[in-house]
Amino acid sequence: MFTHTAIANLNALELMIYNYVIKNKDKVMYMTIRELADAADVSTTTVMRFCKKMGCDGYSEFRIRFKLSIEQEIHQPVNFGVGEIVSFFNSINNKVFEELINQAVIHIANADRIVFVGAGSSGSLGKYGARFFSNVGKFSNYIDDPYYPVSTDTFKNSVAIILSVSGETQEILRLASQFSLHACKVISITNSETCSLARMADFNLSYHMPQTVVSGRHNITTQVPVIYILEAIAHRLAKIHLSK
């Protein structure tokens, strides 16, 4: 019931409800609206807005539909991240997200060069993306140094695919700005489409996963959605390459 389009339209407070709901599925179906509001640290009015955005007339309908969706799911062993990942794949199993992937492919298909950009774990995923895209016939490389110099001619008719969970890392934002300045198209893959990087990019794909930060600064938010998005784009590029 949580579609990618619906989640993308949630504001910060409504996302707090969504994150609480998918982490506490067994509790939520029995909660009153006041209990859910208190648990998510929002108002009951915000809960009602959330329900409306999920396509429900009110909280009672939301709770019934949510309970039915839980009962229809295939029960899996309780492992870290399973609920969140299942919710992600349920949310993108629609034509809207498929069309977003297709739009990304259109941006990439005719580029002479693909450059993956990221720092930390996103840098490692950039390296993976470059290798995977090269496997399907679209030569790519990666930059995991946030201070890498971007010159005028090097990235002409290129696409920079910039990966960032928060989309707020200053060094990455600086690189994105430099790519745009030198006429290089920017595609961002971020956790939120309202972050600074997403707003700077020519095109954004977001995955809306609950963020997990340890020790106040180490982001260990699951990157499974990013891998899926990269591979989905690459497979479509492979079809284009084979048809030529």
Score class of each variant (00 low, 15 high):
I227T: 11
I227C: 04
K127A: 14
K185G: 15
S43N: 04
C184E: 11
N204R: 11
G120W: 05
C56G: 14
V47W: 02
N110A: 03
I22R: 02
N94R: 12
T190G: 03
M200W: 01
E61D: 14
F97C: 14
S134H: 15
R113K: 07
A130Y: 13
H218L: 11
V165Y: 02
F97D: 09
K239T: 13
V214T: 08
F62S: 14
G55Q: 14
L163D: 03
E14K: 06
Y207Q: 15
S158L: 06
K67F: 04
V28R: 12
I74D: 07
R217N: 01
L181F: 13
F62M: 09
H182K: 15
F132P: 05
Y30I: 03
I85G: 11
I70N: 08
F139A: 14
G58E: 09
I101S: 06
H241S: 09
D145A: 07
I189R: 05
S121Y: 06
T154D: 12
A6I: 10
A12S: 03
N102D: 12
E35N: 10
G81Q: 08
Q223K: 14
T222Q: 10
V105R: 04
K138D: 09
E98L: 10
A8Q: 13
I162D: 00
E84T: 11
N135G: 15
K127M: 08
Y20G: 07
I220W: 09
S188D: 00
S158A: 14
I233C: 04
V28E: 08
E193K: 11
I114E: 13
T222K: 06
I114S: 09
I187K: 09
K244T: 10
D144S: 15
E35M: 02
Y207V: 15
T221Q: 10
S188G: 01
L15R: 10
S215C: 08
V105N: 02
H218N: 07
F132Y: 15
L13N: 07
P210I: 14
R199M: 01
A201L: 01
Y148S: 09
T5V: 12
A183T: 14
F132L: 11
I74S: 09
M200V: 00
S192Y: 00
G83K: 06
N157V: 06
H107I: 11
Q211F: 01
V82D: 10
E168N: 00
G167L: 00
K25D: 09
N191F: 01
L68A: 03
D26L: 08
L125F: 04
F132M: 11
C195Q: 00
V186F: 15
I161R: 03
V214H: 11
R49P: 02
K53Q: 15
A12V: 01
Y142F: 15
I64Q: 12
C51H: 13
V115H: 15
G120E: 08
I92P: 05
A39W: 10
V21P: 04
D153R: 06
V42G: 03
R34L: 01
I172M: 02
Q170H: 08
I220E: 05
I33C: 06
V42F: 05
T194Y: 00
Q103P: 05
I106Y: 03
Y228M: 04
K185I: 12
S43F: 02
H182V: 15
N135Q: 14
N11Y: 01
L173W: 00
R236E: 06
T190D: 00
V78M: 07
R34Y: 00
R199F: 02
A232Y: 10
A198E: 01
Q178N: 13
A234M: 06
V105E: 02
P225G: 08
A234K: 15
V86R: 07
K23I: 08
F62C: 14
R174S: 12
